[in-house]
Design a binder for these strands. Sequence first.
DNA 1: CGCCAAATGTTATATTGTATCTCTCGACGT
DNA 2: ACGTCGAGAGATACAATATAACATTTGGCG
Lengths: 151, 151
Amino acid sequence: MAHVHHSHEGESLSSAAKTTMEKSGEQWTQMRAAVFEALASFDKPASAYDIADKVSKEQGRRVAANSVYRILDLFVSANLARRVESANAYVANDHPDCLHDCIFLICDNCGQTTHLDNDSLSGGVRDAAKKAGFAPERPVIEVRGRCGECN
Amino acid sequence: MAHVHHSHEGESLSSAAKTTMEKSGEQWTQMRAAVFEALASFDKPASAYDIADKVSKEQGRRVAANSVYRILDLFVSANLARRVESANAYVANDHPDCLHDCIFLICDNCGQTTHLDNDSLSGGVRDAAKKAGFAPERPVIEVRGRCGECN
DNA sequence: CGCCAAATGTTATATTGTATCTCTCGACGT
DNA sequence: ACGTCGAGAGATACAATATAACATTTGGCG
């Protein structure tokens, strides 16, 4: 059912990200680190432009969205980040080493987004697609609604 | 499991749409009919701009996207159309009278999109959200992948 | 050093989505 | 007939999201 993740004791999200990238033969540049830090610093899904603004401020120079998109795409394909389709935004992935079809719960009031992994649900979605003669690559399972705080 | 819809024998999609709108106290104007026809004429999800272009051509005059958006929003709230979040596009809903959380299978190669209803799956997604203390309003369940024709 | 490829910068443009104000038209009361 | 009111639609501007094309920088490596 629900998957239990071990925590990265003491190891920062960012250094785990670095490790993951390097294991897959990609460089961990200043820019990539800055984008990752910015992404991870948001407490809700961030758009590429949010991230570009944040990195721009931190570095005191203009960083174009374009560059951020490139890096976000890279992160998504390395499983360091996920795209929240219904919000046109991205979140950092705590567990780049665990592959899951994940489920996002996005509060329509405050924007807070929580992340579930439930392989039996996502497996059910994949199976339903297969039964319809469709080859599933990437399930998108998100729920819009109200979080606990916003009722 | 899978829900079986009765067909609207002979009754066109558009006249069913008209009926639905009128039952909910909304007008069925020329413009709304034109937008619905255009939407229904696409064999894959259509963006608001696709529809604006199509209606513009049909009517030999410029129809602005914002008018189309207004009408699409109305259609979505009346369940005459659905938004495909991962494609920023819309599809007509064959069965405005049946409420379902629906599942879209979107081919990344050809764009063809098929529509499943599976209340046990969507119910499972809603339940998982509730267990996490979240009040689900609108599940978004879509699967990107390859359709039967594209393998 | 000189070369090459990857990464990033720069600029422009495409696509998607909203906001605001105006105009038209029909329903309704006088 | 006249005025008025509101829903629908038009027009325009703009904001937000995303991609394309080309130039420049950087770092590894012979």
